[in-house]
C-alpha cells in the first residue's frame, strides 16, 4: 500500500436547512438528484476519491444538518476541517443572510490556526429555479468582502457547476496543505539535554 501519496481532506458543508447541501453532495458523489426533501439528521458522511496533481485525494465530506436543533453537534464536526463549504439558496434571501453567522460559527468552533486564510467556498444553489431573489452581484460582493472567497452558482438538480465547485474545494484545501507543508517540517527536535528538573539524584549516579 503506497500511502505516501495518499491524502484525506475533511470537507464540511454548512448552510440553512433546505438549501440543498445533501443534494449537492449527492450530485457530486453519486451523480444523482431527487426532488424529494429529506432532512439530514445530525450528519451524513460520504467519501469520494479524486486526483489532483497526481495525488490521490480522498474527500471525506461531512454533510451537516441545517436545523438548529442539531447545532449542538458543533465542535465535533468542525474540528480539524480542511475546507468549509457554505451553501445558500438563491431563491431565499434569508439563507444568504445566514452565511455570515455560519462562517463566524465555523471559525469560532473550529478555531483554525490561520482564520483569515482558511479555505471557504460559497455555493449559491438552485439557480435552475425561476424565482431567484439573490442576485449574482450580491453574492459576489459578499464573497469579495470576505477575503475573496470563491463563489459558485450551482444547481444540484441540473448538475450545474457542482463538479467545478468541488474541484476548487479540493484544490484550495490541498493548496493550504501544501503551503503548510513547506513551512512545517517539524524543525525542532526533541531536546534531549533539557535541564534536569529537580528529579532526585542520589549519590550513586555514576553510569558505569
Amino acid at each position: 500500500m503506497s500511502s505516501r501519496k495518499k491524502l484525506l481532506l475533511k470537507v464540511i458543508i454548512l448552510g440553512d436547512s433546505g438549501v440543498g447541501k445533501t443534494s449537492l453532495m449527492n450530485q457530486f458523489v453519486n451523480k444523482k438528484f431527487s426532488n424529494q426533501y429529506k432532512a439530514t439528521i445530525g450528519a451524513d458522511f460520504l467519501t469520494k476519491e479524486v486526483i489532483v496533481d497526481d495525488r490521490i485525494v480522498t474527500m471525506q465530506i461531512w454533510d451537516t444538518a441545517g436545523q438548529e436543533r442539531f447545532q449542538s453537534l458543533g465542535v465535533a464536526f468542525y474540528r480539524g476541517a480542511d475546507c468549509c463549504v457554505l451553501v445558500f439558496d438563491v431563491t431565499a434571501p434569508n439563507t444568504f443572510k445566514s452565511l455570515e453567522s455560519w462562517r463566524d460559527e465555523f471559525l469560532i468552533q473550529a478555531s483554525p490556526r490561520d482564520p483569515d486564510n482558511f479555505p471557504f467556498v460559497i455555493l449559491g444553489n438552485k439557480v435552475d429555479l425561476d424565482n431567484r431573489a439573490v442576485s449574482v452581484k450580491r453574492g459576489q460582493q459578499w464573497c469579495q468582502s470576505k477575503n475573496d472567497i470563491p463563489y459558485f452558482e450551482t444547481s444540484a438538480k441540473e448538475a450545474v457547476n457542482v463538479e467545478l465547485a468541488f474541484q476548487t474545494i479540493a484544490r484550495n484545501a490541498l493548496a493550504q496543505e501544501t503551503e503548510a507543508e513547506l513551512y512545517n517540517e517539524f524543525p525542532d527536535q526533541i531536546k534531549l539535554n533539557a535541564n534536569d528538573n529537580g528529579r532526585n539524584r542520589d549519590g550513586d549516579n555514576c553510569a558505569c
Partner: peptide, 30 residues
C-alpha cells in the same frame, strides 16, 4: 543537538496547485 530526521517524510508535494488536473475516479454509486 538532536537533529534526527523524521523516519518518513512526504517530500514530494507539488508546491502549487496551478496547472493541476482534477480527474474524478469511479464515484459511481451512492
Amino acid at each position: 543537538k538532536s537533529s534526527d530526521d523524521l523516519q518518513t517524510k512526504d517530500g514530494s508535494m507539488s508546491a502549487s496547485a496551478s496547472n493541476s488536473n482534477l480527474i474524478e475516479e469511479n464515484g459511481d454509486d451512492t
